[in-house]
Design a protein around this nucleic acid. Structure first.
Lengths: 211, 211
DNA sequence: TAGATTGTTAATCGATTAACAATC
DNA sequence: TAGATTGTTAATCGATTAACAATC
């Protein structure tokens, strides 16, 4: 690891490489060439080699890449082996589904607390961890020092909560709200899941099939 | 509408424009210049004007753009006013959350059927529509001719189901499974929500703060 | 060794930014 | 009219693709 600035398109391809290599591994592949991998992923061989060479020389001339080693190298580049403590804010439909459906541990995150405004949900358990009152967020964060927040609340509340979370030392957001955190806090890492945008994109594609 | 091929980066910005213009509208703005809009969205004024001019001349020199008109033009370009019938496959945690949380109607989609394999869920209602047995998918689609499928099933089942759905005339997928449909069916429109990839990207960013 | 495939440099392509004449 | 801001062309920047020598 450790060459110069990695471009955004490369970064966004890393998880996909990780995923495909995992599949190859489970299918029993031990080696793969850039040509074969590119064919399977719908990329070009050049691009695959350029991408990997941003981070080091993982291949061997005449042989290709060792699937197992390459995958764990990419995993390490992604930082999946380094755990980050996280809080999840908002356990409505969406928040609960995210909490239950996502295997956070596989990707380097540990949810240490759930927070909610709605009285009726407070006290319930998710995966052996209680849902806490949002009013206790300050105290909890000062004691437990989470680095990451998963934001599953409506846009309306997001401005206030994100301000509070940044103040409490949160360094990264996984943002499901339709509020643009990064415009106000450029120093904080934000990964947006703008799910409605995705649905609108599908609408566009369906209505412009002529390309 | 109707200039030549629109590039992917432009298409992906359209929902964001739509969203920001909606907010401006609700804040009482009637006009906006490319300069002001770009500042709010973190783009350049050039880019904003270039983007809009892919589709027509929506502005007026010396004045800017009418917020209301511009938003509904972009809505029309996105096709939000044209309804597409859709089926949702898989009503586990994720599927149920998607079904309940997403306001499909706002984006041009109408969910006409839910399908599930697990016996215990079949017969339950979601928004006044019953969850059907996946075995009845063929018959239902032949009768009701949905164009779109929302795929909320694990990767393992996705290959078989997507093959079936394509055969049944599905033209577009909103794909939450970690299976790459488009590699097998390039003629079908697919919009992926690769949510784990997003989480891995956040991990990368947090572990490479030095940029 | 001969064949295969990498790592890397150079060429191409496409997207973003800058500039400015047109015009409301 | 003067000022503002668009629409559009040209310049720049960055990412992808092609090519090939290095080497396993």
């Amino acid at each position: 690891m450790g060459k110069a600035n990695i471009s955004n398109p490369v970064i966004r391809r890393l998880p996909r490489y990780y995923r495909f290599l995992g599949e190859l591994k489970s299918k029993g592949f031990t080696r793969i060439s850039s040509g074969e991998l590119s064919r399977r992923m719908g990329l070009t061989a050049s691009q695959v080699r350029q991408d990997f060479n941003c981070f080091g020389e993982f291949g061997q001339q005449g042989y290709g890449y060792n699937v197992d080693i390459l995958q764990s190298e990419i995993g390490a580049i992604l930082g999946l082996n380094k755990m980050h403590k996280a809080v999840l804010i908002g356990v409505g439909n969406l928040g609960r589904a995210v909490a239950q459906h996502i295997n956070f541990n596989l990707f380097g995150f540990q949810i240490i607390g759930y927070f909610e405004q709605k009285e009726s949900l407070i006290g319930q358990m998710i995966k052996n961890t209680p849902i806490r009152n949002i009013r206790d967020l300050d105290e909890f964060c000062r004691e437990n020092k989470p680095e990451v927040a998963v934001l599953c609340i409506p846009k309306e509340g997001a401005k206030v909560i994100s301000e509070q979370l940044v103040r409490l030392g949160i360094k990264g957001f996984w943002n499901f709200s339709h509020y643009d955190i990064s415009l106000n806090y450029p120093e904080v890492q934000v990964e947006n899941v703008h799910i409605n945008d995705s649905l609108m994109t599908l609408s566009y594609k369906l209505n412009n099939l002529d390309k």
